[in-house]
Amino acid sequence: MDTTRTAILDAADRLYYERGIQQVGIDELRSASGVSLKRLYSEFPGKNAIVLAVLERRHAMWVEGLDVAARGEESPRGKLLAIFDFLADWFITDQFRGCAFINAFGELGGSSPEIATVARAHKQSFQDYVDSLVADAGGTIPLARQLVLLAEGAQTTSAISGRPEAAVHAKAAAAVLISAALD
């Protein structure tokens, strides 16, 4: 990726995630990225395209983070619980502001079908990932759905409360669910 595009996406990601997409205008984004307005528009035809590119990067970061967390575990059960360790590590960062996809959907999902589609695809991708891990552990789809709800709820709870321990509580609940379903 070229440095101009990266500068725009870095600035957009930071500003949108900190303040919200609708609160950040193109002029502010141009200034924060250090890119001329003409160059910004040569990279992206409009704000919606920038938001979609930011979400694409966020999705890649999410997938990579989950993969790294799972790689540290050998058992399917350990890989499932590693999801909550990944969340706990994310929640304690100063930059945590909730799920960028939920935030974007809340702001623009009703007016931008593309944003809604990308948010839904991201959430479906996570569900598919958990479905696969649960199947590897010998579990069923209902268990996978319950674990995803715990992870999603932990993200929202932590973002709203400003307290990171939601991941710890969700992990404890997940361990109970996994044991009940698999033992």
Rank of each mutant, 00 (worst) to 15 (best):
L40V: 00
G109E: 07
A119F: 05
L150M: 04
P164Q: 01
S75D: 03
S179Q: 10
L108D: 02
E165I: 10
L133H: 02
V54T: 15
D136Y: 11
L177C: 15
A82G: 00
A151F: 13
V130I: 08
F86E: 15
G98E: 06
G25V: 09
D85M: 04
L177E: 14
A172Q: 13
S36E: 05
E73N: 05
I83M: 08
F126I: 13
I50E: 11
V63K: 11
S161P: 13
G139S: 07
Q127K: 15
L108E: 01
A100F: 11
F96W: 09
A172H: 13
Y41K: 09
L133G: 00
A119I: 07
I160N: 11
L149Q: 14
R57Q: 10
L182H: 00
I178T: 04
I178H: 00
K123R: 14
A154R: 13
A100Q: 12
S42K: 02
L108A: 00
A116R: 13
Q95G: 09
I26R: 03
F86R: 10
T6K: 07
A49F: 08
W62G: 00
I83Q: 06
I160C: 11
G25A: 08
L143M: 02
E18G: 12
E28M: 00
Q155L: 14
A135P: 13
I102Y: 13
S125P: 02
L37P: 00
I92T: 15
G138V: 07
G98A: 00
R163M: 14
L182R: 00
R163I: 12
L37H: 08
Q95H: 14
L143P: 10
A144P: 15
R5I: 03
E43K: 11
V68T: 12
A173R: 12
A172C: 05
L147A: 06
A170Y: 04
L182T: 05
A166Q: 08
R19H: 13
C99A: 03
A53N: 11
A175N: 08
D2I: 13
A116E: 11
L37Q: 09
L52D: 10
T157G: 14
V176P: 04
T156N: 14
I8C: 01
A174W: 00
G20F: 02
R19A: 14
R163S: 15
G46N: 15
I26Q: 01
L9M: 03
A88E: 06
A166K: 13
Q146M: 04
A170K: 12
P76I: 04
A119E: 08
V63W: 07
S111F: 14
S31F: 05
E165C: 09
